[in-house]
Design a protein around this nucleic acid. Structure first.
Lengths: 150, 150
DNA sequence: TTAACTGATACTAAATTAGTATCAGAACAA
DNA sequence: TTGTTCTGATACTAATTTAGTATCAGTTAA
C-alpha cells in the first residue's frame, strides 16, 4: 500500500528545491538535473502545480519556475490532492445516497475517522516545515529517521 | 487516493458476515449471495484468508468456511497487509541503504510518523469491534456517519 | 534570429486492480 | 458407488492507473 505516488513525491521535492532558493527562478531542466527527476515527467508535474497556483512560471530564455507563495503556505496535503485526489475509502457511496449496505457502513465509519486524521496530519506538514527540517539535518550532518528504523 | 481496494473491502465484509454467525460454517456461494460479492472473486479472497489463518475451511458437500479465531483477534490492519501490503511511502529506500537523498529523507521522516499512526489506528479496528458497531446500528436503526457528513 | 525556455497535449509500456473460468479432488448423501 | 456440493489451485482477461516519453507551438532574452 503505497501512500505517495511518483507525481506527489517529485512535486514535493521540486517545491522544496524551489523553496530553498527564495526569489530565484529555476528552469525545469535545472530542477530535473538537480533532483534527478525525468525531465519530461517533471515538466508535466510543474505545469500541474502552476495550474493550481503553487508555482509561477515565466516563458522564454532566462525563464523558469518559482514558488507562487510562502513555503509555509504550501501543505503536502494540497500536493497530494492535486496528484492523487482526496484521501478516501474505495468508492464511498454514502455521500450520494442513503446507506444501503450497513455492513459496509460501519467499516466506512471507522475509516472516515482515520481518513480525517491523515488529512489533518498532511495539512500540518508544509514545504516550509520540510525545508526547516532539511536545514537542521544539513547542520547536524545526520538524518533522524525516528524510532521505527532498524 | 483510495485507501482500501476491493480485495480488502470484500474480505472485511466476508469476515464480518462469518463473525455474525459464530460456530456455523458458510459456503462461499452463500457468502457471495449474501454480501453481493462476485463468486469467483470471493473464492480467491477466501483462499488467501485461509492461507493466512484468518479463516478455516472444510471441503466437500456441507463444507464451507468459518472464522479461524475470535473476531476481536482479527485486525483490519492484518487484512490490509494481506491484500495491499504494509502501509508505506512510495519506495522507501532508506531501510536498505544509507540515505543518499536528504531532500527525500525529510519528507519520508514525516510520512513514517503518519504511517505509524495509520497502522496503529487500523490495528485498533477489529472484526469484533465492527460487529459490535453493526449490532448497535441495527438496534438503533440508524447509522452514525460522524461529523464529516453533509 | 536563434537558443533557451514554457504551454499543451498525444502517446506508450508496465503494473495493478477487478473479475472470470477451469479442472482436480474431498466429503456427504442417496 | 455415483452424483452433487463444496474447496484448492491456478491460468486467463479487460480496464484502469502509473510512470514516463515525445512533439510542436509559442515566448522571451541576448
Amino acid at each position: 500500500m503505497k501512500v505517495l505516488n511518483k507525481h506527489t513525491d517529485y512535486a514535493v521535492r521540486a517545491l522544496i528545491a524551489l523553496g530553498m532558493k527564495p526569489g530565484s527562478r529555476m528552469s525545469a531542466k535545472a530542477l530535473s538535473d538537480d533532483q534527478g527527476i525525468p525531465y519530461q515527467f517533471l515538466r508535466r508535474i510543474l505545469q500541474e502545480l502552476i495550474r493550481n497556483d503553487l508555482v509561477t512560471s515565466k516563458e522564454g530564455a532566462g525563464g523558469g519556475v518559482a514558488l507562487a507563495k510562502d513555503p509555509d503556505g504550501i501543505r503536502v496535503r494540497d500536493v497530494i490532492e492535486i496528484f492523487q485526489g482526496r484521501v478516501q475509502v474505495s468508492e464511498c457511496m454514502f455521500r450520494k445516497q442513503l446507506c444501503s449496505n450497513r455492513t459496509n457502513c460501519v467499516l466506512r465509519h471507522e475509516i472516515m475517522r482515520i481518513e480525517q486524521m491523515v488529512n489533518d496530519e498532511f495539512s500540518k506538514v508544509t514545504i516550509g516545515k520540510l525545508i526547516a527540517d532539511l536545514k537542521r539535518v544539513e547542520e547536524t550532518g545526520r538524518v533522524l529517521h525516528g524510532e521505527n528504523n532498524q
